[in-house]
Amino acid sequence: MIALVRAEWTKLFTTRVWIGLLVGACLLVGGFTALFTGLAGSTDQNGQTALPPVSDPQFQQVALAQISGAVVFAVILGIIGMTQEYRHRTATPTFLTTPLRGRVVAAKVLAYLLAAIPLAILVTAVDLAVLEIYAGARGAAPSLTGDNLRVIAGAASALVIYAVIGVGVGALLRNQVGAIVGALVYLYVVEPVIAAIGPIASAYKWLPGGALRAMTTPFGGPDVLQPWQGALLLLGYGLLAAVLGTLLTVRRDIT
């Protein structure tokens, strides 16, 4: 299994996809964190506070939760990791080398779970750096203690789980473009719509997005699960995708 995981890393790092995803994730998270920091303490037309000032714990948690904005890159990383085998037809040599296909999917899950850890660390570092410099200049950089730390840990570990979900989704759908478009539509259209429609909004907390929100909301609340529940739920989605993907991969013909 170690050999297979290392082979997956060789696949990952011998093309440049990972650089693009890493840079994209850092830009997205860094950009939004800077934007939020810039808008901190501002008021809307009615003189209401739109965003609390930088010293407010609520602002700090929102700013730190921006780390989880990179889940889209984590899920795409996992999707590409799996679907490139079908897109470039390398599934044939891959499954010739490892005819027990479940081992291939398991190796990919493990490889991308581990590969997402440095991604999560880097993205977290970018978020913290922006806050340290920009929010620091505007008053106070957030302290890395208590609830703040919980938000960081929740958001960063969500990135890792989303990479696993990506591998599973890729194994289920096999079509790279379809899987990525599907994931984007789901994350940015389906989940927000469900969350916005009153009668079914309560279902949102059971979806991956709701689980993610739970992991970055330290207090829980009526519409969110406890952080640990969110983490378990998201992990469940990741495992479900991986197991379903494995079952289908083992059964289907490689053509």
Binding site: A3, L4, R6, A7, T10, K11, T14, T15, R16, Q84, H88, R89, T90, A91, T92, P93, T94, T97, T98
Partner: peptide
Amino acid sequence: AFHPARSGRDHLRVYARAAG
């Protein structure tokens, strides 16, 4: 079947690695 962005040598290394 090869990934177009991967060199032939790296392609071979992937499968050498996977097969020990």
